[in-house]
Simulated assay, not measured.
Amino acid sequence: MNMKELFVLLLMSHITTPVKHSLKYILTATSGVSNLPEFMGAATVDEVQIGYCDSNIKVAEPKQDWMKKLIKDDPQHLEWYLLKCSETQQVFRANIDGLRQRLNQTGGVHILQKMNGCEWDEETGEVVGFNQYGYDGEDFITLDLQALTWVAPVPQAVITKLRWNTEKARLEHNKYFYIHKCPEWLKKYVKYGRRFLQRTDRPSVSLLQKSSSSPVSCFATGFYPNKAVLFWRKGGDDLHDNVEEGQILPNPDGTFQKSSDLDLSSVRPEDWGKYECVFQLDGLNDDIITKLDQSGIRTNSVPVPPSEFPVGPVVGGVVGLLLLTACICGLLIWRRRVHGYQRGLEVDTELE
């Protein structure tokens, strides 16, 4: 048994694999980007967007039917999100202006993000909280909940770290929210959305090629959950050379997509039949295998329907499809990710 098969075996084991859930808030402020709102906020559960707001629409919108039912049962929930969206817009606008001034940035495109939330292991009860900021695509400042202190990975954030570490009441509030309040809400969301979150959706798998000299991309879209493996195989052996694996990315409808590119420039045409793309998904007992066949490859001369077009190549890894959702925005701009209603998603003071 090779390492790939062992990983998949562990992935597919419902008995031994813990059931983990996550609640994430992704907040984004932009400067110098004409086609985007100045502020966007998204909430996700298990990487599925459940809510969205921005400075243009000025309302908080639930994005899943089960979230709409939760809000119908508890209207204060939507009111809280609307209030926080409005408050956070003002704070983030001041934050990004302050950072530009401090770093002597007079123009250009700048992006400030905050990603915070918690993970909950339904089997063990373990809770892990996180809260971090990114600026212009790089980590800026992160909260270490174990030590209850802020950590600055870049010199520009040291001033902020020193000041925020003196605010003991705020640190304690962070600890309470991420260890107690956040998982309480997450459990509630999982309860309402369990049927949706625990379903299994098979993907559509296609072979795509930009031109005859380009790599062949095996593209799987529309699958759920996001615990999936996509890889190339030759004669039964996994391929690692000449393969570029893409990340799992969210689709606007709550499903996911993933691609894996194979460079065939050194492969003889008569050997193509030895290659195949393999997709494996948690919840599916059978592999989805797509043989490499010239007649089955979609190229520019064979248009791909919009619903089957990959997000990854379009966005180019930086801004791209930010207009789709702030959720996708958060996942793509931030290149280095971590792994009552009185307070909650706290509004932070300025990053001075």
Results as ranks from 00 to 15, higher is better:
Met1Asn: 07
Met1Arg: 06
Met12Val: 00
Pro18Trp: 07
Ala29Gly: 12
Gly32Ala: 11
Phe39Lys: 06
Ala43Ser: 10
Gln49Lys: 11
Asp65Tyr: 04
Pro75Tyr: 03
Glu79Leu: 13
Phe92His: 08
Gly98Ala: 15
Arg100Glu: 02
Asn104Gln: 14
Val109Ala: 13
Leu112Lys: 02
Asp121Val: 07
Val128Ala: 09
Val128Thr: 13
Gln132Arg: 14
Tyr135Leu: 13
Tyr135Glu: 02
Asp136Ala: 11
Thr142Ala: 15
Pro155Gly: 12
Gln156Lys: 14
Asn165His: 05
Thr166Pro: 00
Ala169Ile: 06
Glu172Ile: 05
Lys175Arg: 15
Leu186Cys: 01
Leu186Pro: 02
Tyr189Ala: 05
Tyr189Arg: 00
Arg199Glu: 14
Arg199Ile: 07
Ser204Pro: 02
Leu208His: 02
Ser211Leu: 01
Ser212Phe: 02
Ala220Gln: 04
Ala228Val: 13
Asp237Asn: 11
His240Thr: 14
Gly246His: 12
Pro250Thr: 12
Gly254Pro: 07
Phe256Val: 05
Phe256Ser: 03
Ser265Thr: 09
Ser266His: 06
Arg268Asn: 12
Asp271Thr: 01
Trp272Glu: 09
Leu284Val: 11
Asp287Ser: 15
Ile289Lys: 10
Lys291Tyr: 08
Gly320Glu: 15
Leu323His: 14
Leu324Cys: 12
Cys327Leu: 08
Ile333Pro: 00
Arg335Glu: 09
